[in-house]
């Protein structure tokens, strides 16, 4: 358990799989872990932009998800990210939603 926030362990999300033989992960050393987190934040922002939400890294341990008006949630991993985004927005975040896909698709596509 984290002594600061009382969060019980990580939940071992597959995108943060613990490094062990045979497992593909970018969770092997500090530099790689940081690089991956930066890249994850930038990828997630691309999608979250459609919902006018922003994401930032918090102490290399969690993420801060905020609305344009400043409502903020702390999220541990990608699963919590989408649940938290839906809670902040009050509506589902559906990756099959045509409006989101039009936002993401290349302009010339």
């Amino acid at each position: 358990m984290c002594a600061l926030c009382g969060v019980l362990g990580g939940d071992g999300h597959w995108t943060d799989a613990a490094a062990r033989p045979g497992v593909f992960t970018r969770n092997t050393d500090t530099m790689q872990r940081r690089r991956e987190r930066m890249h994850r934040v930038s990828c997630a922002r691309r999608v979250l932009g459609h919902y006018r939400l922003t994401l930032s890294d918090w102490q290399g341990a969690s993420y801060l998800l905020s609305t344009a008006t400043g409502k903020t949630e702390i999220v541990d991993n990608l699963t919590h990210l989408w649940a938290a985004a839906e809670k902040l927005l009050g509506r589902p975040c559906d990756p099959l939603d045509p409006a989101l896909l039009e936002y993401l698709e290349p302009a010339d596509g």
Partner: peptide, 15 residues
């Protein structure tokens, strides 16, 4: 890989 992870996680969260 990172974008794929975001996509699959979002898909599984909703569907």
């Amino acid at each position: 890989w990172t974008m794929f992870g975001i996509w699959l996680t979002m898909l599984l969260n909703r569907h």
